[in-house]
């Protein structure tokens, strides 16, 4: 249930994001979801993609600083109140969230990517409450 997310250090300079997406696009790597965390002069791009290890290799070759980290992806129905239910489970289990981002899919479910301080505990808590986690294979394979 652990999903590998690729993070890329980017200076706030015109064209850097274009370069990243070009490198990945040319290699036929598909982006499923991404989010940006930014400060005034640099940012961190976090991305879920079809072949994280290949992407890491390619981007490192191009001189980018990248790292892989483990995240969890939760599938919740796209209806009011469902997210708060899941978050309650986590806070009761003592899992804290470092950051999260969400995206919607065609099948009407919302997907929430969660980076927790303790990935395994996060998975256990969500699964024991019968919440629906997305498998890595599903994530990469859109």
């Amino acid at each position: 249930m652990i999903i590998q997310q690729l993070s890329i250090f980017l200076e706030n300079k015109t064209g850097r994001l274009t370069e990243v997406t070009q490198v990945l696009g040319q290699a036929g790597i598909n982006l499923s979801a991404f989010s940006m965390a930014e400060s005034s002069d640099f940012g961190i791009m976090r991305v879920i993609l079809s072949d994280p290890e290949k992407a890491q290799h390619l981007l490192t070759e191009k001189g980018f600083t990248v790292t892989l980290s483990d995240v969890v992806c939760l599938r919740v129905p796209n209806t009011p109140g469902t997210l708060s239910q899941a978050l309650l489970v986590l806070s009761e289990a003592g899992v804290s969230i470092e950051y999260m981002y969400a995206f919607a899919r065609k099948d009407d479910a919302a997907l929430v990517v969660i980076r927790a301080n303790d990935t395994q505990r996060c998975i256990d808590a969500l699964q024991s409450s019968n919440l629906n986690l997305v498998k890595a294979s599903e994530m990469y394979d859109f």
């Binding site: 997310q5 993070s7 250090f9 990248v66 790292t67």
Partner: peptide, 15 residues
């Protein structure tokens, strides 16, 4: 310059 081996995915630790 940020060294690759010390890059953290966490914005607050970079800051």
């Amino acid at each position: 310059e940020v060294r690759p081996e010390n890059f953290s995915d966490d914005l607050s630790s970079m800051l």
